[in-house]
Design a protein around this nucleic acid. Structure first.
Lengths: 201, 201
DNA sequence: CGATTAGTGCACGCTTGCGTTCCTTAAGCG
DNA sequence: CGCTTAAGGAACGCAAGCGTGCACTAATCG
């Protein structure tokens, strides 16, 4: 037909499914898990609930599928940056920026919604762990190991516990203290905590 | 009357109010904020919703009042322990045990319910901050300062940022990694993170 | 003992949301 | 163009919970 109707034209098949997953992800990152509703997703995707329930059996299945589709991968998050020619201090600053950026992004909001609100759904939590925590720890360990090779990091500091300090401190600030992290904060954290913790003495 | 009726005798006045607050606190720590309902509280307190709504205008008001009544104070939490004759390492181990114990207690569950689930209620969050985070940071700063006086801690390590590392790491483990903290974990955290971070070199 | 105060239990009106049903309309294909 | 497939919109049954109202019952007091 030549005349565009007032209402948006209907999507079908894969295009509709993509729109629904995107709408679900956007809804989750904006309102959290507790306020997430299939009705709101349908409205945002400009579709009907019947079309959603034809594809996904439950609300939880929809959330899961939309996270699989839309959460950035570890590579997209950029935890494994190019730290080769950087000092350990600069590399730490860089990965702190990366983690902070992820925390401030929709992915960070989705992570909080799932890990902190949807506590009864271990499958959702596992998806977050696979996308964020495991790759981030691996990247931190690799960064610390390079620091050892450069003579800047104590070998004893290359442990999973130490690797978790930076994300722990950043998340403590964001989640429990509700504070925005600035470049100055990052500098302070690296200089007052990370460097004293790992440097050779 | 001499014969005890099958149903519990009715409470009145302050006794009833205390029972309601206690039931509300127990409900919150056991099921979290999202699953918290006034109906469940009424059942647990063996009363009716009408008696609750006669006293508290809203569900949030009831939660707030029960937290005020039942959350332990900073002193009861024991953050400000007797660290005077302990080495910094032992004092840190002690406060780590205290924080871990609080996290594992109903107070810890209430804290998570409020800070992580009831995100739309800043008043509730402030109550938690006042009871836990501010006194805990103050206790840590005092502990670190004593370490400086004993010659065990670098003066530059006595900062709020450094004071938050231990709770941040413990909470990261409990909340995001869903892991129970053992005495061995505490020892590892103190030896691999806290001591290297603060010790004189 | 009677009056007053207060609590319990139940039903309610209302709201919200999950998941389902169905009719109408749009899209695609032969 | 007609048929088939699929989507949208509305209404629904149901469940759950917030907050209210009320009748009945228990507790307290003079």
């Amino acid at each position: 037909m030549t005349a565009t109707p007032l209402v948006a034209q209907r999507k079908r098949g894969a295009a509709l499914e993509d729109a629904i997953r995107e709408a679900a992800y956007a809804e989750l990152t904006e309102v959290g898990y507790a306020q997430f509703s299939v009705e709101a997703v349908a409205a945002r995707a400009r579709t009907g609930k019947a079309s959603i329930y034809r594809r996904w059996p439950t609300k939880q299945a929809l959330v899961m599928d939309s996270l699989c589709a839309w959460l950035p991968t570890a590579q997209q998050c950029g935890f494994e940056g190019d730290y080769k020619n950087l000092s350990t201090a600069d590399a730490l600053r860089q990965i702190a920026r990366t983690i902070t950026k992820v925390l401030a992004s929709p992915a960070g909001a989705a992570m909080r919604a799932v890990k902190l609100e949807a506590t009864a759904d271990p499958e959702l939590a596992r998806e977050i762990d696979d996308r964020f925590q495991a790759p981030r720890r691996a990247a931190m360990l690799a960064l610390l190991q390079r620091g050892v090779e450069r003579g800047e990091v104590r070998p004893e500091a290359v442990t999973p516990l130490v690797a978790d300090v930076l994300p722990a401190v950043l998340m403590h600030r964001v989640i429990l203290q509700r504070e925005r992290i600035t470049e100055r904060d990052i500098t302070a954290i690296i200089e007052q905590i990370l460097i004293p913790l790992v440097e050779v003495r």
